[in-house]
Design a protein around this nucleic acid. Sequence first.
RNA 1: GGGCAGUUAGCUCAGCGGUAGAGCACCGCCUUCACACGGCGGGGGCCACAGGUUCAAAUCCUGUACUGCCCACCA
Length: 886
Amino acid sequence: MPQEDLSKSYAPAEIEGRWRARWEEGGVFSPSLPAAGETYSIVIPPPTVTGNLHIGHAFNLTLQDLLCRHARQLGKTVLWVPGEDHAGIATQNVVERRLAAEGTSRHELGREAFVRRIWQWKEEYGENIRRQIKAMGASVDWSRERFTMDDGLSRAVRRVFARLYKEGLIYKGDYITNWCPRCHTALADDEVEHAPKRGTLWFIRYPLADGSGFVTIATTRPETIPGDSAVAVNPEDVRYQSLIGKTLLLPLLNRPIPLIADAYVDREFGTGALKVTPAHDHNDWKLGRKHHLEFIRAIDEDDRMTAAAGSFAGKNKMEARELILQGLTDLGLLQESRECEHNVGHCYRCKEVIEPRISTQWFVSVRPLAEKARAAVPGRAAIYPESWLKTYYNWLDNIRDWCISRQIWWGHRIPAWTCAACGELLVEEEAPAACPRCHSTDLNQEEDVLDTWFSSALWPFSTLGWPEKTAELKAFYPTSVLVTGFDILFFWVARMLMMGLHFMNDVPFREVYIHALVRDADGKKMSKSTGNVIDPLEMIAKYGADALRFTLTAFAAMGRDIKLAENRIEGYRHFINKIWNAARFTLLNLPAQEDPMPDMPLESIHGEAHAWILHRLEEIKTRAAAAVKEYRFNDLAQELYKFVWSEFCDWYLEMIKADMQAGGAAQAQARRALLAVMRETLLLLHPIIPFVTAEIWSALPRTAQDRRPDDITQAPYPAARPGCLRPETATRMEVIQSAIVAARTIRAELNIAPSAPLCAIIRPQDAPKAAILEANREMITRLARLGSLHLNPDAPAPKLSARQVAAGSEVIICLEGAIDPEAERARLDKELNKLAKERLMLQSKLANENYTQKAPADLVERDRLRVEEIITAENKLKTVRDKFNT
RNA sequence: GGGCAGUUAGCUCAGCGGUAGAGCACCGCCUUCACACGGCGGGGGCCACAGGUUCAAAUCCUGUACUGCCCACCA
């Protein structure tokens, strides 16, 4: 690309589009198998097909892409599998809402038409999501894209279900479950969110059957009274001991129920007497089982009272509550009511209040699976940050059987059939033709579908082709790392470990990196249902994908949530622009592409600035690689930011400008060094910001022998160049920079025009410093804008002059006439104050014998030297200040 | 009720034993031939509070106070 085309400021849209197309059409991220050498793989946490990607996805994608691109640079064969999740309940809800808006419903459409409708929806939104993943620059392999309900994955689901059933790890039965009356389905325990809710605690009298009085119970849910089958008290409770075993009459219904004793009951709460409703409360259900109580379903799946509720039958449960309370009041059985706050379960998809309800469901016996999953971490699968280990263990240790059936239509229909003729239950991977027992062909498949997370749990191996023995599976399982948010640690991560270990006999991933959640301005979790989402596409349109990616990377500190504000993205766009302009400068100063550039070993380049920047580059290479390996993404971003902006642009480019004009050997060296540093810096940046680096890379000229690929995605990580690692250059550079800064500070603080050349005297501290300064006289003169420079430890200072103490030298600027002595004196006072403060701090430290004796000797020595330095500086400045006093 | 984070410059956050840093914002000066999405310089913090360990504590320990999150069956 011709140089003239590099515009003054970076315009991402066109460039991103071009590279995206090139990468996609070239299939550059599709690894060919069998893989040569080491492999690296990631399966994408599949976004749901229901909606748009939010900023959390953008974050998740950025980190994975960074890891994948880096792994490619290290020469590994990399596979990043993309895909989407069918998200049963969520998707069904969305489509149902749309149907409602159209004035129809899924029931009107019927199951088949409804599911067809969702498939259409999926095609539409799947494309949307693909577009967004592409917009982020994610280097996924689209040729291996999967969907949780595609044929292959559906088969994997059936295989797993059938096998677990035959192994006795899946069973069907009547249990208390979490019922969402709105989604009309059972939910797993972890799909219920508990939130405190203000309510009323009613104290209700249950008369004793023998007419000898009452037992008063406390409840927040009077509508469940028709479902009561006992009242329970603590056996130790003296108030009730004499009544245990007696019969009570259920108010309004006059049904006799026993008064039972159980240690579960808390004597302190309410009246110490608990009404037991086994069919509508998890704890009561346990009590019911233990004491063989009746299970009375008082509320149906639509939140209406059942026939068991007598005259309340057919009423909505909230209406029934009012009627029951009224009835109790009329009978004088409502003793009192109090305000109270209690935890109420809500559906994690629609936020509706959960009704515990007994129903027939399918369950996975997770204990045996959980034990294996527990044992595998952190030995076989490591979790980062480690703080999540405890949470992970705690969950597995307290795990209950997993309810996997859902009473919805969108999802994997359970592969179980009941024989209409003999009632035999058949569970098979493929639909059986006839009942093996009675040979009837009249078989009815289960209506229920599986929990979405059931198929998600198989994702790492199902996407690679299981149950077929594919080349992908062989090459890429276990995957290298799973990158995800902690919100789905239980839903997904733990279950993948269970299934992976059970069916593949190996962990699904070697490492898990748990990243923070991107929250909104108030620190609230972003979610589609809350509507507080930020659209990454909008950010990309405004600032470019690279700016967004860099921002997210810079924020990715372990174990900390991200509160993202748009102006941060804007800030990092400036950084992208800075890189762009550094590249423009580079191109302006390099020969055109077709001119062969002289090759010379970089180790042989001895210019002060070149040696220094090459040395720093070596350090950065090492540090950047380590940061990626250890998932310290924020360190990576910060390190590169500082290097590029503060060192490469602010100092190095300024320093070499003269060389670039000089021609000859100086220019040749500068060109060679600049090109090398630019190119390798691009490689270091590329995993974070692929587009701008690709564009610049392709525009850079090459040396005669250069055989590097045109496309930066194909280029390896910059090799270490030990010969360029020269720590002494950093020390030397500090002396130079410090002198320049001193002169600039004087200029700025004394309001000397930037264009006015300064007459400067620099007094080096010692001979080595003098040599360094002397060797870089031209550079110092230029960067500090000096008119003249006298380098001499003993040079006399003119009467009217300003001084600044630098590292390794003292800088004196002549102020013949034009300068306000008041200003200089004030400046000197300020400087003296600063020095005195530091000196006092150090001196008091050194006065402490404990310190001088116990602290490391080099530290003490360093402090002593510093004090000496300060005293010398103070004396010098004082002398000058005194002159101004006269 | 249990567990886990966080509390550092106006804002967002790094630092996690040697006496405080970044970005943005702010204040000067500058249309210097890569970049005003810029350059140069500057101001700003008893590092939540109270104890303790240590020669030395944002940094380690123990409490306290807020804030947020996760888990848990308190009717």
